Amino acid sequence: NAATPFGLKAMASLQEINPSKDVASNPQIMFLCLHAAGLNLIPVSVIAVRAAQNASDPTDVFIPCMIVTFVGTLAAMIIVSLRQKINLFQPIILGWIAGISLIIASLVLYVVTLNAAGIQSFSSMLSNGLILLVFLLIVLGGLYKKIDIFSAFIDGAKNGFDTAIRIIPYILGILVAVSMLRTSGTFDAVITGMKQFFAVLGADTRFVDGLPTALIRPLSGGAARGMMVSTMTTFGPDSFASRLSGIFQGAADTTFYVVAVYFGSVGIKNTRYSIGTMLLADLVCVITAIFLCYLFFG
């Protein structure tokens, strides 16, 4: 949520150079697909919920979450690059990928040495430090370019209010759709059918109990969090389904919400292949999460 204003500003900037104002441009699609992939450094909310549910080790899903979210981001980048015919084997692109991979690997190696309290403390310091850094960079950038920072802030606040009004219908539509799906019993029917299908195949069906979080996650983060808590309450916080549900929650963003808010804020009506790409990246995350959950938790 804290990143949303910056994301909306980036989308507005990309819209300024978009030749077709109601059709998503290639840069906008790449930006939004990477955003929806949800690269998450530390799944603090998932760890906090697991701790509140008295899990024996609230942080045991941290490494799977990190791996899944990184794989999802790479998948989104590769899929969009293939559609846009971008050569990923350029030195600068490979350098960025290698650099980000090194940072994430270093973060994982450090965080695994901490306990739950240490992770929450480190995450808080990291988050607050990044916010402070961004604030300082904005102020210093304004001073360097001799911009009236206060006036720019007021103008930005006015634009933010206008943006909020524009995206309210899109948010309302998403919330209504989520409510209808949850109250109609659609998810229960889908989960029951999937469990019966995999049972007939003779496959392990434990992962199916964690799928409600994955199914609702593209629509609503709050609803997915509710599904995760419900799974923990039903099966226990240390169950396979609960751990898988936590990985789902911490490893992707709300695809349709992101599309509605970001494209809606700039008046994009034709999203081209962006939704399909995001859902395909979500599918990669789901498959990877299931594989890693069996690998880590059996």
Rank of each mutant, 00 (worst) to 15 (best):
V49K: 01
Q28V: 01
T205H: 06
A203I: 12
P43R: 04
S265Y: 00
R166V: 12
F135D: 07
A2I: 12
G202P: 03
F291Y: 06
A51D: 13
M180F: 06
T288F: 09
A55Q: 02
V80L: 08
C293S: 14
P64V: 04
I268N: 09
Q53M: 14
V112I: 15
N87C: 14
G185T: 08
G298R: 08
S265F: 01
A214P: 01
K85C: 10
W96Y: 14
Y262W: 13
F122E: 13
S151T: 11
I149E: 11
I103N: 09
S245I: 08
T231E: 14
L133A: 13
N128R: 13
L133Y: 13
K21S: 15
S124P: 11
T163F: 11
A223Y: 01
M232A: 11
A116C: 13
M278H: 02
D22C: 09
S81L: 04
D22F: 05
T271F: 08
I42F: 04
A105C: 07
I86D: 10
G210W: 06
I103T: 10
I165H: 12
P64W: 00
Q84C: 10
P5W: 06
A116L: 03
P212E: 04
L32R: 04
V258Q: 00
L126K: 10
T183F: 12
R83N: 12
L143T: 01
A223T: 04
V68H: 02
F161T: 07
G236E: 00
G236A: 02
N26T: 09
V200L: 11
V134S: 13
S245E: 11
L137Y: 03
V68N: 02
T213E: 03
L211P: 01
T231G: 15
I138N: 08
S25Y: 00
N115T: 12
I78Y: 12
I154W: 02
A98W: 06
T277L: 13
L102F: 15
G156Y: 00
F153C: 12
K9V: 07
K9L: 12
V46P: 01
F89L: 15
S245T: 09
A189S: 10
A52K: 15
V200Q: 11
I29R: 15
V284T: 14
N159F: 09
I191H: 10
Y144M: 06
N26R: 13
I167D: 09
F256N: 03
R206E: 07
F122P: 08
A3T: 03
T233W: 02
K269M: 04
V61A: 08
M228P: 05
A241F: 03
A260M: 07
G173H: 02
V284N: 05
V23P: 07
M227R: 12
S151A: 14
A281Q: 00
T271C: 12
R50S: 13
Q53D: 06
T271W: 05
A105K: 01
I154T: 07
T271N: 14
V200A: 10
F150Y: 11
N270K: 13
G160S: 15
L137H: 05
P237I: 05
K85Y: 12
